[in-house]
């Protein structure tokens, strides 16, 4: 019924963006001319202390690790919440997830550096805590509010709690869970830039170096790469969500 069309006209700009980003990361010097007008006193237009490609991959790795950890913890917490003692556990679980969200990432860095020292770990902790809430909330909604008739039918057919979770509830909730992961990952992408203040090697390094030396070209290229990554990540997840929604028998779900 619904064609699995990966390249619709709406996706064309995304593909173009991907090509531009890859070209820029592969040979940033080729774009010197573009950034030169933003520099003063003959400063370098392209950041070269570390290869931009290396910083980008590092940045993505941190985001992936933080989001993955947040996903495991938040989905686990949501499942536990729906199983344990008829949701009486919910306020506590929600409080835990909320603290992660409301505590400013900068403060998390400041508090964790004395424990873990400078490097990627404090940033990872901040990304993890910051990623919990969206995933927790969407998973909870997906597990408790979707297709109540199908969930009851699972029980009435004689599935055990675990069978119902694995065969019905999680597959049906998957599109929603993915949307939570998407939110967390996009937030993490932005949050990871501040990790470079505590010596995590991320794209934030380019921006901060630009700030310190008054080089607008650095600030802009760091910012642009992060923004492009955010858009691409968002689009990629939307595609996954649409596929998952189709698998879950909801072909009309947006995506």
């Amino acid at each position: 019924m619904t064609p699995a069309a990966p390249v619709t006209p709406a996706r064309l700009p995304t593909l173009l963006l991907l090509v531009c980003l890859m070209a820029f990361l592969a040979m940033p010097e080729a774009f010197s001319g573009l950034f030169a007008p933003l520099t003063r006193n003959g400063a370098a237009p392209i950041y070269t202390q570390a290869p931009l490609l290396f910083l980008t991959l590092n940045h993505l790795a941190l985001v992936a690790a933080g989001t993955l950890a947040a996903t495991i913890a938040a989905v686990g917490l949501a499942i536990a919440t729906t199983r344990l003692a008829g949701l009486s556990f919910l306020p506590l679980a929600r409080a835990v997830a909320n603290i992660g969200q409301t505590f400013p990432p900068v403060a998390v860095l400041a508090l964790t550096v004395p424990i873990f020292g400078f490097g990627p770990v404090p940033t990872l902790v901040a990304l993890f805590l910051y990623g919990l809430l969206p995933i927790f909330e969407t998973t909870l909604t997906g597990l408790t509010e979707l297709a109540p008739e199908a969930r009851e039918a699972a029980t009435a057919c004689g599935m055990t709690e675990t069978q119902r979770l694995m065969k019905v509830e999680l597959p049906l909730a998957l599109p929603l869970i993915l949307s939570g992961i998407r939110l967390s990952a996009v937030i993490a992408l932005a949050t990871a830039t501040i990790g470079s203040t505590v010596a995590a090697s991320t794209l934030g390094e380019v921006i901060i170096s630009g700030l310190l030396t008054g080089n607008t070209a650095f600030v802009l290229q760091g910012g642009l790469v992060v923004a492009a990554l955010a858009i691409l990540l968002n689009e990629g997840f939307m595609l996954l969500e649409a596929i998952a929604a189709r698998r879950a028998g909801r072909p009309s779900a947006k995506g």
């Binding site: 008739e149 009435a156 599935m159 055990t160 049906l172 879950a248």
Partner: peptide
């Protein structure tokens, strides 16, 4: 309960089919 239910058919108005299967 789950073993009991496997021996009892149950059909409802909203039919409750699993949409992903």
């Amino acid at each position: 309960a789950h073993a009991l239910r496997r021996g009892i058919g149950y059909a409802i108005q909203g039919h409750g089919l699993f949409p992903h299967r």
